[in-house]
Design a protein around this nucleic acid. Structure first.
Length: 772
RNA sequence: GCGGACGUGGUGGAAUGGUAGACACGCAAGGUUUAGGACCUUGUGCCCGUAAGGGUGUGGGGGUUCAAAUCCUCUCGUCCGCACCA
């Protein structure tokens, strides 16, 4: 080869080929989902829908680009891959941006969606955007309201109260993360714990159904199943009555008792005192200054602070109850380590058997007496759950309006189905005003009662938790324009359940549990015919900033994928994300190793211009077929990093021995899911095909090429490696032959000479171990 | 506190009972006039040795096994979630 030919060679410039191919794919519609293309049926490839924060970040790339690798491989092996995407477009950030910058939440959100759609294009995925859902549009949230009303009708959605973080100034409930040092993040005033009336979903009705069986029919990670089961926290026990000893014993008519829930009724004889939560109704009856001060103090602590506080605090109420087993009077204490929201908010303390009770008894010098573990108190059997009903009320603007009208004479009246959606008004003052933003719009707020026709009834001014929106969006994807229900049943029965659901581990206890709950509710309505919405769940890790911390604007450690793409191209970034770490891992981003991937692509590019005419040897075929098998299996199991390293190993082999067109074509097909533009470009120039590489069949491997002619057998003496001996495969079946063969090795014989061999362990084709 | 996960070279990681460190980054030495992010060769856990080779080694202790990064047990450490962030 002379210098002239070198000069005419084309070099690899991602920026020249990537936009070109995306345009061609778009024009030819190769990523449009149409049924009955493949021979293996449908494959619903789902990724958690993104929040439109404004920019795609590396986390989105990690989710979507790698799920796309998986999807593309599925398509090549013959599935009709359904890969939609949408936006989880309601939520607080839009409202914050609006307050801070004076942009309307809707405008802010829709602009972000537009921008992110453009950024998504540069990722080179096969997402078909004809199937989508944007949760803040009336077309979508109409069905939120419809589902809510079905739940209301069935008693699943109800008004209740729960202890919540409450800001008295803004008249709003706050998330734990919106409390900074006990103060409201917006107004800076003190946050208190308060019983707040709000909408709930009775997810506890489904608690037993949501518990994962030992051996589930679907493939969800064990940590998710265990995590959810622990979260549901079913425990069987008893409700026991402890009679209150009245100060004035004459008043026996109104004898009252305090109920406790216990999982260990057999230890009741060891209960030497009772502890109730500061919010317990009995605590309010105590007219002691110290007690009311203690209650006031604990109202300032969040639930988390209470759980974390290791130095137990508490105060004696001055009152007693009767232990139903021993008949003895035991004192009643108040302490905030007892939570009002769990059980009955009161516990019988058995310091002999329970560590927390013991700490408390020791601190306050309360008696500790042994329990016989044989008590059989009278009481009602009761199953208690750690899982609480799901609070879905938000005193916010940017969400789905609750489709309920409060009528003075009829109470809570559902909006008629024909009047849905209850549209979110555009011009509303959403700055904090001490009432829900929607309540400031008198005209919107006032409505006619659908039941009695009274004018002047009020609409519910709260909006739904955005987790409500995201609990069922993947149903909407299958028929996004359907007008007669949340989704078209026939389409759902064709495409659901989801085949793989890719997302983050942070959704273990929230979103994925809610989605399962909705599916079970839909099943009860007769809308779907399956128990679980996703056959498989894959949870990926987090890419941290280069400094090892979570990426955040305030830390200034955000890596913008657009910049990396500009520098190296989409294909390099996709391959690097595949290669840098296992999909489940959490690790910092580092730019160092990315050049290795870029070099890898350049070497393949160079190789495409040096294809040789050659016959392939058996070991060439071994290498090729083993690579086909391993890469396919690894992509299927989301082990992208080892799939890429397998390709690198084959490339190293081919570089050394020279590459044929046949091998190279296979190589391109194997790398196509990772580097779609790159593979397409070379496929067209080398194979001279007009068809897309992405619509080609994935190469199949032949098992005859997976076994080699000769195998390295590891020889150990007493478990220590002494040599490896090459043995021809036909001989491997005969242990005696292998034994004799390896004994000839000098390295082995020097350890065996003069020794008595007590035992020989032979693992066919792998290892032989002499025990002496 | 409760629940879950994890701990392997200078770095990311591979190996799920059978050759620890694949693959890659980095580093070192050598080669090569080397502009489209250069490339090629060799080496690279640690210790002894010119080498052959030997010893040692997967947070730490103990155990099971012919054989342990992998299984069991104790211990130390790190990370994540805990209900209104999405």
């Amino acid at each position: 080869m002379n210098k002239n030919t070198i000069k005419t060679k084309r070099k690899y410039f991602p920026s020249e080929i990537e936009p070109k191919w995306r345009q061609i794919w778009e024009k030819e519609g190769i990523n449009k989902f149409k049924e009955n293309k493949g021979s293996k049926g449908k494959y619903y490839n789902l990724v958690e829908l993104p929040y439109p924060s404004g920019d795609l970040h590396l986390g989105h790339w990690f989710s979507f680009a790698l799920a796309d690798v998986h999807a593309r491989h599925k398509r090549m092996i013959g599935y009709d891959v359904f890969f939609p995407n949408g936006f989880d477009a309601f939520g607080l950030p839009a409202e914050n941006a609006a307050i801070k910058r004076g942009v309307h939440p809707k405008d802010w959100t829709m602009k972000n969606i537009e921008n992110m759609r453009k950024q998504f294009a540069t990722m080179g995925t096969m997402i078909d955007w004809d199937y989508t859902a944007i949760t803040c549009l009336p077309d979508y949230y109409k069905w939120n309201q419809w589902i809510f009303l079905k739940m209301f009708e069935k008693g699943i959605a109800y008004r209740g109260t729960a202890l919540s973080n409450w800001c008295e100034t803004d008249k709003t409930v706050l998330a734990n993360e919106h409390i900074e040092g006990g103060k409201c993040w917006r107004c800076g005033n003190e946050v208190v714990q308060k019983e707040v009336e709000q909408w709930f979903l009775k997810i506890t009705n489904y608690a037993d159904e949501l518990i994962w069986p030992q051996d589930p029919k679907v493939d969800w990670p064990k940590e998710v199943r265990e995590g959810q089961n622990n979260w549901i926290g079913r425990s069987e026990g008893m409700l026991l009555d402890f009679e209150i000893v009245e100060k004035d014993r004459q008043d026996n008519k109104n004898k009252k008792s305090i109920k406790v829930f216990t999982t260990r009724p057999d230890t009741t004889d060891g209960a030497t005192f009772m502890v109730i939560a500061p919010e317990h109704e009995f605590a309010a009856e105590i007219d002691l200054k110290d007690v009311s001060e203690y209650i006031k103090m604990s109202r300032k602590k969040t639930e988390m602070e209470r759980k974390e506080d290791r130095t137990k605090s508490g105060i004696f109420t001055g009152r007693y109850v009767v232990n139903p087993v021993t008949d003895k009077q035991i004192p009643v204490w108040i302490s905030d380590y007892v939570l009002a929201g769990y059980g009955t908010g009161a516990i019988m303390a058995v310091p002999f058997a329970d560590e927390r009770d013991r700490e408390f008894a020791e601190k306050f010098k309360l008696p500790i007496i042994p329990t016989s573990f044989k008590s059989k108190p009278k009481g009602e059997k009761k199953v208690n759950y750690h899982l609480r009903d799901w609070s879905i009320s938000r005193q916010r603007y940017w969400g789905t309006p609750v489709p309920i009208i409060h009528c003075e004479s009829c109470g809570l009246v559902p909006v008629l189905e024909k009047d849905l959606p209850v549209e979110l008004p555009y011009n509303v003052d959403y700055t904090p005003k001490g009432k829900p933003p929607l309540a400031t719009d008198e005209q919107w707020l006032t409505a006619k009662c659908p039941k009695c026709g009274t004018e002047g009834a009020k609409r519910d001014a709260e909006t739904l938790d955005t987790f409500f929106d995201s609990a069922w969006y993947y149903y909407r994807y299958v028929s996004p324009n359907y007008n007669n229900g949340p989704f078209e049943k026939s389409e759902v029965s064709k495409l659901m359940p989801v085949d793989v659901y890719v997302g983050g581990a942070e959704h273990t206890l929230g979103h994925t549990l809610y989605a399962r709950f909705f599916t079970k509710f839909f099943k009860d309505l007769g809308l779907v015919g399956f128990e679980e919405f996703a056959k498989k769940r894959v949870q990926h890790g987090v890419i941290l900033g280069p400094d090892g911390n979570r990426m955040s604007k305030s830390r200034g450690n955000v890596v913008n994928p657009d910049d990396v793409v500009k520098e190296y191209g989409t294909d390099t970034v996709r391959l690097y994300l595949s290669f840098m770490m296992p999909y489940e891992a959490t690790a910092p981003w580092s730019t160092g190793a990315i050049s290795g991937i870029y070099r890898f692509l350049k070497r393949i590019w160079e190789m495409s211009q040096n294809l040789e005419k050659m016959d392939l040897s058996t070991s060439d075929y071994n290498m090729m077929h083993r690579t086909i098998k391993k890469v396919g299996e690894d992509i299927d199991s989301f082990s992208f990093n080892t799939a890429v390293s397998t390709l690198m190993t084959w490339l190293n082999y081919l570089t050394e021995k020279g590459v044929s067109k046949q091998e190279f074509e296979v190589f391109l097909k194997l790398i196509a899911p990772f580097a779609p533009h790159f593979a397409e470009e070379l496929y067209h120039s080398v194979v001279k095909s007009d068809n897309s590489v992405h619509l080609q069949e994935w190469p199949s491997y032949q098992s005859k090429y997976l076994t080699q002619e000769a195998v390295q057998v590891v020889v150990q003496v007493n478990g220590k490696l002494r040599d490896t001996v090459l043995v021809y495969s036909p001989k491997l079946k005969e242990q005696k032959l292998v034994e004799d063969l390896v004994k000839q090795s000098e390295n082995v014989s020097k350890y065996l000479s003069g020794q008595k061999i007590r035992k020989v362990i032979y693992i066919e084709g792998k290892l032989i171990n002499f025990v002496i």
